[in-house]
């Protein structure tokens, strides 16, 4: 059987809220090392990769590898019934056709159980090599969210250019254009506000803002978003979930026709 208890149930709520608009349904893969998901959006332009380590759970048991297909909208409906401070336990019997979500309030005076029907989903996995990236930018997650939101009011795409000291986000639209530059800033006294750039080679790539805005829904999971870019490769946008794992998004670039 599979059984996993997350004391910070809010994490699971935030993860599902971050991905439910991007992917309709997906297989959650459980094995002895953890709980993970890999799914492409319907247009095969972006990919979500979630990984929650077994040791990030308060209790974790997975007797055999299982793949549980779920409709994200249904999962979201159920998780919305959990309070932010509830612990969440997921349970499923081997070869079962449902997964049970148990919500416990901190004082355990309220216990609720919701069963979600599992689905058979044909999923297409992509083999993603561990790339060396030309540039890595770590910036406050809220700052990244604001940049992609603000630029979306002007244009549909963003050109992200990284140099040694700064990262520039630029867009062009019918009403004009916009540029936002963030300089490297390693404020030791305010680590949550730091912007760090690690670069092997200057890089400049263009992406659809619609998807970056969707990725930024993961902002509540982490203080920082990490952007990894390489010429002619999809961007990797990572949110590290402290002590539990990470939620990552890949987005293919746009190129001149």
């Amino acid at each position: 059987m599979f059984e996993a208890r997350l004391a910070q149930g809010a994490l699971l709520k935030k993860v599902v809220e971050a991905i439910k608009d991007l992917i309709e349904d997906a297989n959650f893969d459980c094995n002895s090392s953890g709980f993970s998901l890999q799914a492409m959006d319907s247009s095969h332009v972006s990919l979500v990769a979630l990984s929650l380590r077994a040791d990030g759970f308060e209790h974790y048991r997975c007797d055999r590898n299982v793949s549980m297909g779920m409709k994200l909208a249904s999962l979201s409906k159920i998780l919305k019934c959990a309070n932010g401070d509830d612990a969440i336990t997921m349970k499923s019997e081997d070869n079962g056709d449902t997964i049970t979500f148990m919500f416990e309030s901190p004082e355990q005076e309220r216990l609720s159980e919701f069963d979600l029907k599992l689905m058979d989903i044909d999923s297409e996995h992509l083999g993603i090599p561990d790339n060396e990236y030309d540039a890595t930018v770590k910036l406050p997650a809220a700052e990244f969210q604001r940049i992609v939101k603000d630029l979306s009011t002007i244009g549909d795409t963003v050109e992200i250019s990284v140099t040694k000291d700064a990262v520039k986000f630029g867009t062009t639209g019918d009403i004009g254009n916009a540029n936002i530059m963030c300089r490297q800033n390693k404020a030791a006294d305010k680590p949550d506000e730091s912007t760090e750039i690690d670069i092997n080679e200057a890089v400049s790539l263009t992406f659809a803002l619609r998807y970056l805005n969707s990725f930024a829904k993961a902002t509540p999971l982490s203080t920082h978003a990490v952007l990894k870019l390489s010429k002619e490769l999809p961007i990797l946008v990572e949110y590290h979930i402290p002590e539990v794992g990470r939620l990552a998004f890949y987005l293919a670039p746009k190129i001149e026709d």
Binding site: S43, G127, A252, K254, E256
Partner: peptide, 14 residues
């Protein structure tokens, strides 16, 4: 015009 590439252009089915 910018063309949107797909992920399978970059990553092999695995």
């Amino acid at each position: 015009m910018l063309q949107q590439l797909g992920l399978p252009v970059f990553y092999s089915p695995g």
